[in-house]
């Protein structure tokens, strides 16, 4: 019953449905990339510099004759994997610190928030580049670097939710009945603060995908993994001769990030019906 309401609220936002459809395509592409294109996306399967639809190459080939469509399919795996895992890691760090700060308050709150602000004062992307450069680029170091720059907003959000819910009656009741702090945090407060966290983490996946693309664009991606940002970065130098090499992977990034943002908005509508889009409702 509740899920029916959720879907109805979500579906009311047409953009969100479109976003979900695009996302479904990307996920399917990512999941089945090894079946659709069994060859490695690095293999030079065709003549270099083929345009789209030339010689059986759907989206053309790049400067070395690697298939762009295959690169996009395999790149979807990399983008989604890094987007999801880094967001998960950021969620764990952010929610843990935010929850502790919001629940306990006082000096715990002060310490944790000053620590969080430390990260917030450093520009995200600069820090990511530095971290990846130090750890040497690999999928693991990229996930870690993105997570490290992404958690502060989640921590602040979780803290705000926890602070607000901590003074609510059901939490007070739980405290008076002598439940442990851990039980209160996990059973009482966390489930009730999930909505805003889900919304913002869906947007965070989009940011992570963009960050990963930017890193790869700068040549700081995992050199053994084909990714969209890498494809744009490698092809930008020949953009005057071969537009398709950077256009299609760029389009893939655009659509994915757009879809994630639309989904985020839809989730916001569905999960926080009162605060969302008053004008529209």
């Amino acid at each position: 019953m509740q899920s029916m309401n959720f879907w109805r609220a979500y579906a009311r936002n047409k953009g969100a449905v479109i976003g979900l459809l695009i996302m479904a395509v990307v996920v399917v592409l990512g999941l089945f990339a090894p079946l659709i294109y069994p060859e490695s996306p690095w293999d030079m399967v065709n003549a270099p510099f083929l345009g789209p639809m030339e010689e059986g190459s759907l989206l053309g080939t790049d400067t070395l004759g690697r298939d762009i469509a295959s690169g996009i399919a395999h790149g979807a795996r990399v983008s989604l994997l890094i987007g999801l895992t880094s967001t998960a890691v950021a969620l764990v760090i952010g929610v843990t610190l935010g929850a502790l700060a919001g629940f306990f308050g006082g000096w715990v709150d002060d310490t944790l928030m000053r620590f969080t602000e430390l990260f917030q004062t450093i520009p995200n992307f600069v820090l990511t580049v530095v971290l990846v450069a130090i750890f040497t680029p690999s999928q693991g170091s990229i996930v870690l670097a993105i997570a490290i720059v992404s958690w502060p907003p989640l921590a602040r959000l979780a803290r705000a939710e926890f602070m607000a819910l901590r003074s609510r009656e059901f939490v007070q009741a739980a405290i008076t009945t002598g439940q442990s702090n851990a039980t209160i945090i996990f059973r009482e407060i966390l489930p009730n603060s999930l909505s805003p966290l889900i919304v913002s983490s869906s947007l965070m996946v989009a940011t992570a995908v963009l960050l990963e693309s930017s890193l790869s664009f700068l040549g700081l991606g995992d050199p053994n993994a084909m990714s969209w940002g890498y494809m744009v970065g490698a092809a930008r130098t020949v953009i005057r001769q071969a537009w398709w090499m950077s256009f299609f992977p760029g389009l893939a990034i655009l659509l994915t990030v757009l879809a994630l943002n639309l989904i985020g908005e839809g989730l916001n509508d569905a999960l926080n019906p009162r605060v969302a889009r008053k004008g529209k409702a």
Partner: peptide, 10 residues
């Protein structure tokens, strides 16, 4: 040189 490395790998 990056392209060269990718070519050698393949």
């Amino acid at each position: 040189w990056q392209r060269l490395a990718e070519y050698v790998k393949v």
